[in-house]
């Protein structure tokens, strides 16, 4: 049985938390440039220029790209042939978050829900653990901002609403959100599963690279249709008017109960932070 030390996982969570907050992925940067060429609003083009410059400064000078350095969402695909050594996996992940947010001068953004008192170290991380075949551990570190998360939505639609109803919900969610989730955004859509799984599908959809279509041509076509309709809303960069409201739409789907039609929309701001590593 392959052995992997939880200390290695702790260190990876620390390093990736810092790196994700400073280094915007090339996929998102390329999308800024691509959309800027098409953007007809002068204000919109100016904002996209600022975002390109912001990413350069963050990377070169080691400043977080956004002061909201996020809640730490950690996805773990744990191979069932792996033996974890040296301690408790959840503890190691939380220790990695604590180390990273302290050493990287990242803002600590977790608090008690009633008193609003800050926990002080950005824990607890939100951990999604999945057991998979094989002898590897795959880890994603996804610092997720609050402004865009607040504009996300879950609906248990009547099945009679059909695909048209699901599309309408996605468009309406973006329309209602306006400038609040810091567009240009990436829209994650989860259809099917049940009450807790649809939002998780939507969040997993956000792990994909910007510009990467779903391998199923039917779902890929829906993604493209939604992207066009969202960009026709006119909100534009920062909601100040323009053609660049979303950089991409990612859709994930799975079967659901014959009585149900869960649809979840998870909005990701332009600070599209996600890094991954395999052990």
């Amino acid at each position: 049985m392959k052995e992997i030390s939880v200390t290695a996982i702790r260190n990876a969570v620390k390093d990736l938390s810092i790196k994700a907050n400073r280094e915007l992925g090339q996929d998102t940067l390329d999308a800024f440039v691509r959309y800027k060429e098409k953007e007809t609003s002068p204000v919109g083009r100016d904002i996209l220029d600022q975002l390109i410059e912001n990413a350069r400064i963050a990377r070169e000078e080691g400043i977080p790209m956004c002061q909201d350095t996020g809640l730490s969402v950690i996805f773990v695909d744990l191979g069932q042939e792996v033996h974890l050594t040296g301690g408790d996996l959840s503890q190691a992940i939380n220790d990695g978050v604590r180390d990273g947010y302290q050493e990287g001068y990242l803002r600590k953004s977790t608090c008690h829900p009633f008193t609003r008192k800050n926990i002080g170290d950005n824990t607890p991380a939100i951990i999604h653990l999945r057991l998979v075949p094989g002898d590897k551990v795959h880890l994603w570190v996804v610092p997720k901002g609050g402004g865009s998360e607040n504009m996300s939505r879950l609906a248990m639609l009547p099945p009679s609403k059909g695909l048209a109803g699901a599309k309408e919900l996605v468009i309406q969610t973006v329309k209602d959100a306006g400038p609040n989730p810091c567009p240009p955004m990436i829209v994650g859509v989860g259809i099917g599963g049940n009450f807790e799984v649809a939002p998780l599908l939507a969040k997993r959809a956000l792990l994909r690279q910007v510009g990467e279509r779903h391998p199923d041509p039917e779902l890929a076509a829906i993604e493209e249709e939604l992207l066009e309709k969202i960009n026709n809303l006119g909100w534009g960069p920062q909601g100040l008017g323009g053609r660049t409201t979303a950089l991409d739409v990612h859709l994930e789907m799975m079967p659901c109960h014959i009585a149900s039609f869960p649809v979840a929309v998870n909005i990701q701001c332009h600070a599209n932070r996600h890094l991954e590593v395999t052990f």
Binding site: K229, G234, W235, L240, G241, G242, R243
Partner: peptide
Amino acid sequence: PTTVVNDVRGRDLYAVGREIYEIKA
């Protein structure tokens, strides 16, 4: 760097901007 959203004439860029760039189906 900032952008004017609300001016002294009571105009709102969030309303006007979207109106300019919206493409209705």
